[in-house]
């Protein structure tokens, strides 16, 4: 609504009367404030994709003596038969999906708990969202030495105490460790958004329903959940968007191993480019991960674009 008002504002512009007029000049004068940011973003983030596309059609290995050679789609065809690459695709899918679901669940439960009146609620909220701010490299490093470590970590001690024995998390359950630590950070993020969603729920509706004898569970399932739906979708989209590129946790905790079991697409591109120095292959993998990311997030963006268009619901 408000945005419509904004677009219809048109002001008499006296300052421009003296300027060399003409519709073209005016159009560019209007666009001028936008251009620096637009040009900057296109040059630094979009142009590289085009260049990557070009590189991906070449055989180009920095350690080989051969000059770069145009090979058309050879790199892409090779990717389809590269077992490690396919593994990376599956890993990316499994880890991203688990992290998104777990973050929404954990964040949602915490938000439901914090969306109530009790003493110390502000403190609890502040503590619960803090993991999101922690530098991922720092988090991964401390979890590795202080928490997951089988001999010195606190988790090893806990599992020992309950009688499961000391688990070497990182080598026995590498994927799970990555999922746990990333979920820890992103559930704090989910909590923030879902709590805002819950707080925008009209309390009168819930009260009216309770007066009518509806149980709390009923109110939650039939009224709160439908209200929360766009917020859950938005959370899913944003978590997926960031977690698809999960890198720090993998680089610090597992280096993509053991046996590539935690290598996701971003990490595999990194390995190909900066360990194997195969720029042609790395570029092709990069292009494929770009395609996958777009295929996943653009439809989701369409689903939630309603929220963006309204410019906020709360």
């Amino acid at each position: 609504m408000r945005m419509k008002i904004m677009t219809s504002i048109s002001l008499p512009d006296r300052s421009r009367a003296t300027r060399p007029s003409g519709r073209l000049a005016k159009g560019w004068w209007d666009r001028l404030p936008l251009l620096p940011a637009l040009v900057f973003v296109i040059l630094v983030t979009q142009l590289p994709f085009v260049i990557t596309l070009y590189y991906s059609l070449q055989r180009w290995n920095l350690v080989s003596t051969n000059a770069p050679r145009f090979v058309w789609f050879r790199n892409f065809v090779n990717a389809a038969t590269d077992a490690t690459f396919l593994k990376a695709v599956v890993n990316t899918g499994v880890m991203t999906f688990s992290i998104v679901v777990a973050s929404v669940l954990v964040g949602g439960l915490l938000a439901a708990g914090l969306n109530r009146e009790f003493r110390g609620r502000t403190i609890a909220r502040t503590l619960a969202i803090t993991p999101f701010f922690i530098m991922p490299v720092a988090a991964a490093l401390f979890w590795k030495t202080g928490i997951f470590d089988p001999t010195f970590g606190i988790l090893g001690w806990i599992t020992d105490e309950i009688g499961i024995g000391r688990i070497n998390w990182i080598s026995q359950y590498p994927k799970l460790t990555i999922i746990i630590i990333t979920t820890w950070q992103w559930s704090a993020f989910a909590l923030l958004i879902l709590l805002a969603g819950m707080q925008s729920f009209p309390t009168e509706v819930a009260e009216a329903a309770e007066v009518d004898g509806a149980s709390r569970l009923y109110v939650f399932r039939r009224l709160m959940l439908p209200h929360l739906r766009p917020f859950i979708e938005l959370t899913g989209l944003l978590v997926a968007m960031y977690v698809l590129e999960n890198f720090a946790a993998i680089a610090i905790l597992t280096n993509g191993g053991p046996a590539y079991s935690t290598t996701n697409l971003s990490y595999y591109v990194y390995l190909e480019a900066f360990s194997a120095f195969d720029l042609g292959r790395a570029s092709a993998f990069g292009m494929i991960s770009l395609a996958i990311a777009m295929a996943l997030t653009i439809p989701m963006l369409r689903v939630v674009s309603g929220i963006f268009k309204e410019g906020g619901r709360a």
Partner: peptide, 18 residues
Amino acid sequence: ISTKMMPIAAGIVPIYLV
């Protein structure tokens, strides 16, 4: 907003070379 959905890994090789 769509630029945020594109994994930066896909652009790292040219960024590095440039």
